[in-house]
Computed example of a mutant assay.
Amino acid sequence: MTSIDRLTTLCPPPSPPTTPPTDWPAVERQLGMPLPTDYKQIADTYGPGTFCGFIHLYHPHAHTPWTSLTGPMPTTIRAQLQQERAQYSHPLPADPQDLFPMAVTDNGEYLFWVTRPATSPDQWTIAVNQARGFHWYSHDGTLAGFLTAVLSGQETVPLFPNSLLDHGAAFTPLIPAGTLTAEQPQPNSTMAPSDDIRAWARSHGYEVPDRGRIPAGILDAWQKANNS
Rank of each mutant, 00 (worst) to 15 (best):
F54S: 06
P161G: 15
N162F: 11
Q80Y: 00
Q186E: 00
R85S: 13
T8S: 09
P158C: 11
P25D: 04
P193V: 09
I42G: 06
S15Y: 15
G178H: 14
I42S: 09
S68M: 06
D196M: 11
P158M: 10
H139T: 04
D220Q: 13
F54D: 07
T9N: 13
I4V: 13
R116I: 11
V208T: 15
S89E: 14
F171T: 02
T179Y: 04
R213Q: 13
Q154D: 13
R6E: 14
P36F: 07
Q41G: 10
W222Y: 13
F171L: 01
G217R: 04
L165D: 01
T2L: 11
G32K: 03
M191I: 00
H61C: 04
E183H: 07
I197L: 08
R202H: 14
H167W: 01
D95Y: 02
Y39D: 02
F134R: 09
V128W: 08
S89L: 14
P91W: 07
I197R: 05
V27F: 01
T172L: 03
A103W: 01
G141A: 15
H167T: 04
P74G: 10
I218C: 04
L81D: 08
T179N: 05
A86C: 06
P36K: 08
T75P: 07
Q82Y: 01
S189H: 07
I126P: 06
T181K: 06
G205P: 10
T18D: 01
A131H: 08
P74V: 01
T179E: 08
G32P: 01
F112H: 06
P34T: 10
T37Q: 12
V208C: 14
P117F: 05
G205F: 09
Q154L: 02
Y110V: 15
